[in-house]
């Protein structure tokens, strides 16, 4: 990764759609420019570590921390729904998920 990748406004539009953020069209170029600068500065990560270096995803070597499968006190449905923008019949009410023809 010696050369810095080029990021276009279209690339940002694609990433924004993956990330579900409706970035206005006139701001895409602004983010593209900044993303390119930041990527240029961080690209050096590929210069240093060879194949023999293992990856570390987490600072503490912990795996599969489980508890006994016993029912514990938790939030009531009313508490869990208390911050919801829209509620119906003790459920989160959301906009339509499937297109009508589906």
């Amino acid at each position: 990764m010696s050369e810095t990748p080029k990021i276009s406004a279209d690339d940002v539009a694609h990433l924004a759609s993956l990330a579900r953020i409706d970035i206005p069209a006139d701001r895409l170029g602004y983010y593209a420019e900044q993303l390119e600068v930041i990527l240029g500065a961080v690209a050096k990560v590929s210069e240093v570590a060879g194949d023999d270096v293992p990856a570390t995803s987490h600072p503490q070597p912990l795996t599969n921390v489980f508890r006994e499968d016993i029912v514990q006190p938790s939030l009531t449905a009313q508490q869990a729904l208390s911050g919801a923008p829209s509620v119906e019949d003790e459920r989160f009410r959301v906009p339509r998920i499937l297109d009508e023809e589906q």
Binding site: V42, V45, S46, V48, A49, V53, P54, A55, S57, P59
Partner: peptide, 15 residues
């Protein structure tokens, strides 16, 4: 691999 994977290897080297 080039970005996130390499960054995680650097994490090992820093440790």
């Amino acid at each position: 691999d080039a970005y996130y994977g390499s960054a995680q290897k650097i994490r090992t080297l820093i440790q």
